[in-house]
């Protein structure tokens, strides 16, 4: 819901010279991250992704494009997969956030993590946390059943190394889907 009444005035050009508030107030935000309450004092312009990576030090969630075009930043918010790069941390007050760091129980990997290792469902590993969170989100949704459906609903996560068939193998194993197609 964007208000259309304002636009950059004619004549203004790069770089931008419009008025902006000098010091935006910081906000105190409580996020529940991987089962732990985290209180953050941050400015509203901090994305959830940057809050995790730069302010909390949870660098498992990756920045691949910062524009919602690759899926590397996928985390689960209240069980649903979202792009943390296009989310302001202040808007997630009180939410339960699960990142890649929150999936294993101690030394015991989450079955999806196990399956990714077993099926070599990665190469460089940079898209992997996002793929795994997305795959868990997909299973939570309970909609995709066939390999083709999983493939379509995993298409928000780009893997430049091209591990897609192995990613599907891993997810199918966890879902217990038999056979291909």
């Amino acid at each position: 819901m964007i208000n259309p009444r304002e636009y950059i005035e004619p004549g203004s050009s790069w770089p931008l010279g419009h008025a902006v508030p000098d010091q935006p107030a910081t906000h105190t935000v409580k996020l529940n991250i991987n089962g732990q309450d985290v209180h953050l004092k941050i400015e509203p312009w901090v994305s959830l992704l940057d809050a995790l990576r730069e302010y909390i030090g949870l660098t498992g969630t990756k920045k691949g494009c910062d524009h919602g075009q690759c899926g590397a930043c996928t985390v689960l918010v209240d069980g649903k997969r979202i792009n943390s790069c296009l989310t302001l941390a202040v808007m997630k007050q009180g939410c339960e956030i699960t990142t890649i760091e929150g999936l294993a129980k101690g030394d015991e990997l989450h079955p999806m993590q196990e399956a990714f290792v077993e099926h070599d469902a990665y190469q460089c590993g940079y898209c992997t946390p996002g793929q795994i969170c997305s795959a868990i989100g997909l299973i939570n949704e309970g909609i995709a059943n066939t390999r083709d459906e999983i493939s379509e609903l995993m298409s928000g996560n780009i893997c430049r190394c091209g591990a897609y068939p192995h990613i599907l193998d891993a997810i199918e194993q966890v879902k217990g889907v038999a056979g291909h197609e």
Partner: peptide
């Protein structure tokens, strides 16, 4: 001066990051 509503934010934040949208609030 130049407020905007935000909900999902998927398009607005994308555009703010490339300085196409520049709300003050």
């Amino acid at each position: 001066d130049s407020p905007k509503f935000i909900a999902g934010g998927t398009n607005l934040l994308d555009l703010m990051k490339v300085n196409v949208e520049n709300p003050d609030h």
